[in-house]
């Protein structure tokens, strides 16, 4: 079974020391847990400027093209520069973007730059990841998943992937996914018992994606909860990797 982890980070973490910060160490962690490929974003882009993290991410992808899929982080607060970053990402073959309104302090509204970013992403068939939490940590900022509804409606062909949600937000997530076919979900923060089974039963397995949040989070619990979910083996294969292969055209 192929494991594709759609939520991985690269770089330093300002809140506490991380052991795994280098490209080689991330590859080592993937090898240890038999993760074949990873969708990676740079933490430098979260905490400094978005552009700051793009070069190191590109280098990581270049060094490990068969293992690493780079998702540069962009913010509409960067204005025209953000649009150039999307163009640049598209030119070097990035298959998606990651956005953090809760960290970069903007709304998913009708801001012209945001609209332009999403228009480009839709045109280039890029996945736009909008995790509601960067990791499951109760002290870090959180996006209300209901805020995604507006952009999902406005861009019905845009491939939106959310995540970072746990038991308290599950009902709102299911409502969003019922309303918007273009919204998918990654499970790195869904720690509630039977959470995966619930989403599969109510939405189906085709829109669920395996993610660990490593190296901010341990990878093994995410693997264990997915492997032991009371769903079919076919559905597990989809969640662990087949859905990502399809969505990202791998």
């Amino acid at each position: 079974m192929k494991l594709i982890d759609v939520t991985v980070y690269y770089g330093n973490w300002p809140y506490w020391p991380l052991k795994i910060t280098t490209a080689q160490a991330i590859i080592g962690l993937m090898d240890r847990w038999n993760i074949n490929q990873a969708v990676v974003a740079s933490t430098r882009s979260v905490f400094l400027t978005c552009q700051d993290g793009h070069q190191e991410l590109q280098d990581f992808v270049k060094d490990f093209p068969d293992r690493i899929i780079g998702f540069p982080i962009v913010s509409p607060k960067d204005g025209e520069e953000a649009l150039q970053q999307v163009e640049s990402a598209h030119q070097y073959g990035a298959k998606g973007l990651r956005m953090f309104p809760q960290h970069h302090q903007y709304r998913l509204d009708d801001d012209p730059t945001l609209v332009s970013i999403l228009t480009l992403a839709q045109e280039y068939d890029m996945v736009v990841q909008i995790p509601c939490r960067i990791m499951l940590h109760w002290g870090l900022p959180q996006l209300d998943v209901r805020e995604i509804d507006g952009i999902a409606a406005r861009f019905p062909k845009l491939k939106i992937m959310t995540g970072g949600l746990n038991y308290s937000e599950l009902r709102d997530l299911l409502g969003l996914m019922r309303r918007r076919d273009n919204v998918t979900f990654e499970i790195s923060c869904l720690q509630v018992f039977d959470g995966i089974k619930t989403v599969v039963e109510k939405i189906g397995a085709d829109r669920l994606f395996f993610g660990t949040g490593m190296p901010l989070q341990y990878p093994s619990p995410g693997i264990a909860k997915t492997a032991n979910a009371l769903i079919s083996d076919e559905d597990k294969e989809k969640i662990f990797g087949l859905n990502a292969i399809k969505l990202l055209n791998l």
Partner: peptide, 17 residues
């Protein structure tokens, strides 16, 4: 914290440490 939190998940964070 079961049955709120997935116990497979909870066990793996110790066994995988």
């Amino acid at each position: 914290d079961m049955p709120l939190i997935d116990p497979f998940f909870g066990l793996a964070k110790v066994t995988g440490a």
